[in-house]
Design a protein around this nucleic acid. Structure first.
Lengths: 204, 204
DNA sequence: ACCCCGATGTGGGCAGTGACAACATTCATT
DNA sequence: AATGAATGTTGTCACTGCCCACATCGGGGT
């Protein structure tokens, strides 16, 4: 017989993260409650403190998980295309796709109280995601598919662009309701803003 | 002699909004507390309920105030330029400028729990701000300074762009620290994305 | 085999919160 | 002057985040 109530949960940390995500999905990141998370994981209201310093630490962990997934998603999308400029573009689309598929993570990553905010303390996961983006930009520049110039600036341009779309989309402010519709709009925006090289180099 | 403790505050609603804004500025929109707001306004913890249905209603009012200011700021910026395309561009810069000067309002307008979120219930103030933007776009199209096409789509393009910059800037994720530096970057982004009309019409 | 100690989970408690209800004070209208 | 709607106050409740002391478990050294 399985012990009905094993004193030790066995995998509480993961269960808590899982419960936190579904709770956020239901009530939003602000109405989100640490005690309710514990309840859903079937433990006492104090058990979470054995795995997370406090409430902010829990959500920060959710955010970190999100950054890791985001980085992976962008990498996967980029890997599907040979042309550097396409790799960049589709990484951007993957950014938006991630926001749409994991809105709880996305919200927490950029609007949570414990998450970065003031200063650059965004944690290594966040930096990693941004680094991925910068590399895609420099690659595109190297292959002359993007004009020369400060790669950081272009990376920021790309980032602000997809972030704006993702943010407005996940908060339901865009007049498009389905993921494909939003991605189509995103494509339009990206193509529109991609420097359509006034001097289309012939050496590519 | 001035009555030391007038039972009626006289202008509580305004004072509460004011107190709310400075509280948000100090502790952020999540740590923000209704009772503390009441304390700062010098009234009991229940007085606010005579002016706002609940906590969310208070922050929604702050957001509405923000939208009104935003609309005004964009209008002022546009008014300074004769060329439609410049009017659009500077309205965009004003959007970002507003976010930088009134970060509390801006945060609350787009990240608050009561604020729109699901659905289009963003309130008339929000719609008004967006309408202003759409008008600037159609004007630019009429004067051939922007290619023809769905004005809504171009308006959304412009919006997502400046919103992305504003959002990342106000959460301290851009490597620029001063307002001028951020606006300069914004200018770069806007110019970069503005369709540099492949066929520069001569009839303007 | 034993014990013991660190890791993990529990129950109780505290100050602070949002919201409700009843009560007090004020002001404008008649 | 009186009265009723606005406005502000005190009291209360369930709930929250986090602290404390205590209970239970499990693995390593003797």
């Amino acid at each position: 017989m399985t012990r009905r109530k094993p004193y030790h949960h066995g995998n509480l940390r993961e269960s808590l993260l899982q419960a936190a995500i579904s709770l956020i999905a239901e009530v939003g990141p602000t109405a989100f409650t640490l005690r309710e998370v514990a309840r859903r994981a079937g433990v006492s209201h104090n058990a979470p403190y054995r795995h997370f310093r406090d409430k902010d630490d829990l959500i920060a962990s959710v955010a970190a998980e999100g950054y890791r997934e985001l980085t992976a998603a962008m990498g996967r999308a980029a890997a599907k295309h040979p042309q550097a400029i396409d790799r960049l573009k589709h990484a951007g689309l993957a950014y938006i796709g991630f926001a749409l598929q994991r809105p709880e993570h996305f919200t927490v990553m950029f609007d949570a109280p414990g998450t970065a905010e003031h200063g650059e303390s965004a944690g290594p996961e966040a930096k990693q995601a941004f680094t991925t983006l910068v590399e895609l930009v420099t690659d595109a520049q190297r292959s002359k598919q993007l004009p020369a110039g400060d790669p950081l600036q272009f990376a920021l341009l790309a980032w602000t662009m997809v972030h704006g779309i993702a943010k407005l989309a996940t908060t339901g402010r865009l007049p498009y309701r389905t993921t494909p519709a939003i991605l189509k709009f995103a494509s339009f925006v990206i193509d529109q803003s991609l420097p359509v090289r006034a001097n289309p180099n012939t050496d590519n």
